[in-house]
Amino acid sequence: MAYADRDRTTENTVGMIISAVLIAVVGWALVSGLAYEGVKELVKKVTTVDIKEPEKPKEPPPPPKQDAAPPPIVAPPPPVNINVTPPPVTVVTTPPPPAPVVPIIAPPAPVVAPAPRVQPKGAVPRGNPANWATTNDYPTRALREEREGTSGFRVTVSPEGRVTSCEITSSSGSSDLDEATCSNVTRRARFNPATDGEGQPTTGSYSNRIRWVIPKD
């Protein structure tokens, strides 16, 4: 019995302690909660500022809506013909400008020499031209070969009547007979010189032929 009483007392003590602890905890929680709510309410009152916004001026009422005038009646544009025939192209041919007129200049009139006071004359041989070349002048080789022929010649005569040059105008066919012709005529021929329109001696010319014939015994 004694042990039973002891155990029950101990249990009662422990229960009391536990109850006291729980009451303390609950009380602390209640106190803490009330304090927190009070502080929160105080902060809310302190931080809250009652700011009144200024009243906005009242806008005037909009004017009454007027009925829009109906749009004017526009007539539709006339139809446009796209396939329009182009106007005919007229080609204008511009004639070329007239050619400039070239003056025709007449050639100058020929200068007519005055008529000579004296009729000009050609050179005239002095003596007989047959004596200018004789049988004694026959080239030896042509004579030996019995070659014959006629040599035509033309000489230039100075104002003094002497032969200054000789040329063969038609060959005899033998060069030695042609050479003998000019050599003998130049050496032997003498002339009355040619004269001009004033009758003064001037340079002239003379033409003739010499026939080379082998002499007969």
Score class of each variant (00 low, 15 high):
Val185Ile: 02
Ala4Met: 05
Lys45Cys: 00
Val31Asp: 07
Met1Lys: 04
Glu146His: 09
Val157Asp: 03
Arg8Tyr: 14
Pro86Thr: 05
Pro100Glu: 02
Val111Phe: 07
Leu22Ser: 11
Val111Pro: 07
Pro88Val: 00
Pro96Phe: 09
Gly15Trp: 11
Ser207Tyr: 05
Gly122Lys: 02
Lys121Asn: 06
Met16Gly: 11
Ser172Asn: 15
Ala123His: 07
Val213Ile: 08
Val80Ser: 02
Leu42Arg: 13
Asp5Ser: 10
Val102Leu: 09
Lys52Trp: 03
Ile214Ser: 04
Asp176Phe: 06
Ala189His: 03
Pro103Lys: 08
Ser175Ala: 14
Ile104Met: 12
Val112Lys: 10
Asn12Pro: 04
Val43Gly: 02
Gln200Tyr: 02
Ala4Phe: 11
Ser158Tyr: 00
Ser207Thr: 12
Asn192Trp: 10
Ser172Ile: 02
Val91His: 12
Val112Gln: 04
Lys65Glu: 04
Pro201Met: 03
Lys44Leu: 09
Ile214Ala: 03
Glu146Leu: 04
Val92Asp: 00
Ile51Tyr: 05
Ser170Thr: 05
Pro60Thr: 05
Val112Trp: 06
Gln66Ile: 15
Pro79Trp: 00
Pro116Met: 02
Asp217Lys: 08
Pro129Ala: 04
Trp212Pro: 01
Ala106Gly: 07
Arg190Leu: 07
Ile23Leu: 12
Asp137Ser: 03
Arg154Phe: 03
Ile73Met: 09
Val91Tyr: 05
Thr169Tyr: 03
Pro76Leu: 05
Ile23Ser: 13
Ser183Trp: 11
Asn192Met: 14
Gln66Thr: 13
Ile73Trp: 00
Gly173Ser: 11
Lys121Phe: 09
Asn208Arg: 03
